[in-house]
Computed example of a mutant assay.
Amino acid sequence: MKIDFKIYLGLCLIIGACAENVNPATEVKQCSGSKPFPLEVRVHGCVTPPCLVVKGTTQKFEIDFAVDKYITKLTTLVKATTLGIITVPYELPPEVAAVCPNLMYGAYCPLYPTEDVTYLFTFPIGEYPEIGVKIEIYLADQDGETATCFVCDIKVVKNSGGTKVYELNYLN
């Protein structure tokens, strides 16, 4: 069977474009204790931590996890550790901390045991000093139990001002 070169090339370009839009998994660590570990975490723009996050913006995390019980509510909680010794809770606005409205691919609460879901966490990066931070992100259910938890190293960097786009107008 002969394959037309143009069709073959077109398919390769389509597959390549689709694969390019997929965020690869980020290397994250387990939380202390026996807290459930996510199936996979994808920090947009980062595969190997420390992940560079720009202060004054938001960083997107896609968190794939499985639940082992009936869950009606999930809340995102974050702890930040700097200098290896100072750990503080990172307060999130209620609409950011709410997991159920931010489940992806048609998933919604309540969640049932053995269900796998993906959560899009849009993490607001405040105007903080440009330092390395270890963040622990965990999702707590309606009973205060941890549904999943992971640790990721980030480095807060300043905004470089973005990219300027210049338009040339040859008509004038």
Rank of each mutant, 00 (worst) to 15 (best):
N159H: 15
K2L: 10
E136I: 07
Y119D: 10
K6V: 10
V22D: 03
A147N: 04
F5M: 08
I137H: 04
F123A: 00
G144P: 04
L13C: 14
G16A: 12
I85Y: 01
G144F: 09
Y112P: 04
V78S: 00
A80T: 12
T82R: 07
P50A: 02
Y119Q: 07
E136S: 02
L52I: 10
D4T: 10
I85N: 05
C100P: 08
K55E: 14
C46W: 02
K155W: 13
L83E: 12
Y90I: 03
G132T: 11
I125C: 07
L52H: 13
P124I: 03
N102G: 03
G45C: 09
T146K: 10
Y112E: 07
F5C: 07
G10L: 14
C12L: 15
A80S: 14
D153R: 02
G161T: 03
V78Y: 01
L74D: 10
A140K: 13
D116V: 15
S34I: 05
T146M: 09
K73A: 15
G56A: 00
G84T: 01
V133I: 15
E91L: 12
K155E: 13
C51T: 01
F150K: 04
D68H: 12
C149P: 03
P110S: 09
L74R: 06
I15K: 09
A17T: 08
E115Y: 06
I71S: 08
Y108H: 15
K69M: 11
L74M: 15
G144C: 05
G33A: 01
Y166H: 02
A17N: 05
G161W: 00
Y138K: 06
V156P: 06
G132D: 14
P110H: 12
K35V: 08
V78L: 00
P113Y: 00
P38T: 05
L39C: 08
V88Q: 11
Y128M: 09
A147F: 08
V28A: 01
K2Y: 14
T82Y: 00
P38E: 03
G84M: 01
F123S: 01
L120S: 11
L83I: 07
L171I: 13
I85S: 01
V53F: 11
R42P: 03
P110I: 13
S32Y: 09
P101S: 04
T87R: 01
I125S: 07
Y8P: 03
K155V: 08
I15D: 06
P129K: 10
V133A: 10
L103A: 00
L74W: 06
I154G: 04
G33K: 04
L168N: 11
C51P: 02
T75E: 15
P49R: 01
G33I: 00
P50V: 05
N172W: 06
K60H: 05
E40F: 09
A80L: 11
Y8L: 12
E127V: 06
K6M: 09
T58S: 15
T82K: 08
V41M: 09
Y90K: 03
P124F: 03
T146Q: 08
V67A: 10
V96F: 02
F121E: 05
I3P: 05
A107C: 02
E115L: 15
S160V: 11
K164S: 10
K35F: 11
L111H: 06
C152R: 06
Q30M: 13
V88K: 14
A107N: 07
S34W: 04
N21P: 02
T57S: 13
N169P: 08
V53Q: 04
K2I: 09
E115W: 07
P124G: 03
N159F: 15
T72V: 14
F61W: 02
L111C: 06
P93R: 13
